[in-house]
Computed example of a mutant assay.
Amino acid sequence: MTAKVALVTGGGSGIGRAISHRLAADGYAVAVLDLNAAAAKTVVEEILDKGHTAAVFGDVDVSDRSQVDTAVEKVRESLGAPAVLVNNAGITGFKKFGHITDEVWARTLAINLPGPFYACQVVYRA
Rank of each mutant, 00 (worst) to 15 (best):
A38M: 09
Y28T: 01
R22S: 05
G80A: 02
A31S: 00
G58S: 03
D102F: 11
S13Q: 09
L35K: 13
D49A: 15
V56Q: 13
N36V: 01
V75K: 05
V123P: 00
D102L: 13
L35D: 05
V8Y: 09
A89Q: 14
L85C: 12
G90C: 10
V30W: 00
D26L: 14
D49C: 04
T9L: 03
V104Q: 12
A37Y: 04
R125G: 08
S63T: 04
L48F: 09
S20V: 03
A37I: 06
A106K: 12
K4A: 12
G98E: 13
R107E: 06
P116C: 01
T101L: 10
I15P: 07
E45D: 15
R125N: 15
A38V: 10
Y118C: 00
H52T: 04
R125M: 09
I91S: 11
A119R: 00
V5P: 06
A3K: 15
G16S: 02
F117D: 00
S13P: 03
K41E: 15
D64Y: 06
V72N: 06
A25V: 03
L113Q: 14
T108D: 13
D69V: 14
V68P: 09
R76G: 12
D69M: 07
G11R: 05
D34S: 03
E45N: 09
T101E: 07
H99V: 05
E103C: 10
A6N: 06
A71L: 06
C120Y: 04
Y124T: 11
T2S: 13
I91Y: 07
A39C: 05
A83W: 13
L79V: 14
E77Q: 14
V104A: 09
N88V: 09
R17W: 06
I47H: 01
L7W: 02
R22I: 02
H21F: 01
D102H: 13
L23P: 00
V86W: 07
S78K: 14
R107F: 03
L85A: 11
L7R: 06
G27C: 02
K74M: 12
A106D: 15
I100M: 07
V5H: 01
S63L: 12
